[in-house]
């Protein structure tokens, strides 16, 4: 075996860790997965450090020091990618081979995903007390948010994106209430808010904090709170605009 192949497992483990972190896996899952792969292939003195924006991996293989660091640009939660990387790491450890990592792809068509965005907001609109008319109208801001998400510029941060998306959803909902009698902008906005709410990251961040991953937990918590404030800000701006400027 040449020396390049000796450390190929390290590159594959780093790639799996990076993809897990980018797809929204918890810090402990990223760290655990990478550590298990490295141990299986004979590395020692392993230390893996994962926070929402950075992944650092150190290890020794015989006398060689191995190091990897990457800036994590979190995109959207991709559950299929988390499962794929998990399965790949299991297979890698079992067969001690280096599988090729192909690019992730959406399992569902774009049209079906847009339909599901409308369906989910409509369902939650009724869940929170809306009428069938509100649920149907709710699909318009949902489609607007989903289309924005699909065409999100890389430079636009998560906070700016949430603010813009909630502002537009809020304006559409208030406009509907103005022109369509019998519909409630409140219920339409509640349905739309469900597409943007970062509730789960609050759960994950508190779990990270309680398990001693202070830095990861704090960063996730700040991220969730600022994300929540930006959503609230967008809707507040839309409501205030229609309350004071239009009416």
């Amino acid at each position: 075996m040449n020396s390049k192949n000796d450390y190929k497992y390290f590159d594959t483990a780093c790639e799996i860790g990076k993809r897990l972190a980018e797809s929204g896996a918890e810090a402990y899952r990223v760290e655990n997965t990478v550590e298990i792969i490295l141990k299986t292939f004979g590395a020692h003195d392993i230390s893996v450090f994962s926070i929402p924006t950075l992944l650092l991996i150190f290890a020794k293989h015989e006398k060689k020091r191995l190091f990897f660091s990457v800036r994590i640009h979190k995109t959207d939660i991709d559950l299929a990618e988390i499962e794929r990387m998990n399965e790949l790491s299991r297979r890698m450890c079992k067969s001690k081979s280096f599988p090729e990592i192909s690019d992730s792809d959406y399992s569902y068509s774009k049209v079906f995903r847009l339909f599901c965005a409308a369906l989910s907001t409509g369902a939650f609109c009724i869940y929170f007390g809306g009428t069938p008319l509100d649920a149907v109208l709710c699909s318009v801001p949902a489609l607007a948010i989903s289309l924005f998400e699909n065409n999100k510029p890389f430079s636009l941060g998560e906070i700016a994106f949430s603010f813009r998306a909630s502002l537009i959803a809020g304006l559409i909902a208030c406009f509907f209430e103005m022109i369509i009698p019998g519909c409630s902008s409140n219920k339409i906005m509640i349905g739309a808010i469900m597409l943007l709410i970062p509730g789960l990251s609050i759960g994950n961040s508190i779990r990270d904090l309680l398990f001693g991953d202070i830095l990861s937990g704090t960063l996730s918590l700040i991220n969730a709170v600022t994300g929540g404030v930006s959503i609230v800000g967008g809707f507040a701006f839309a409501i205030a605009f229609f309350k004071y400027a239009v009416n």
Binding site: E26, I82, A236, K243
Partner: peptide, 29 residues
């Protein structure tokens, strides 16, 4: 044989505080 996150993230969506978060903003305005 799948990560628990894959099941938990979508399953917990009905628990999220969408309604109360919205009414917080509404009453603030």
């Amino acid at each position: 044989k799948t990560p628990s996150t894959v099941i938990f993230i979508p399953s917990s969506i009905p628990l999220l505080p969408g309604g109360s978060l919205y009414y917080t903003v509404y009453n603030l305005i």
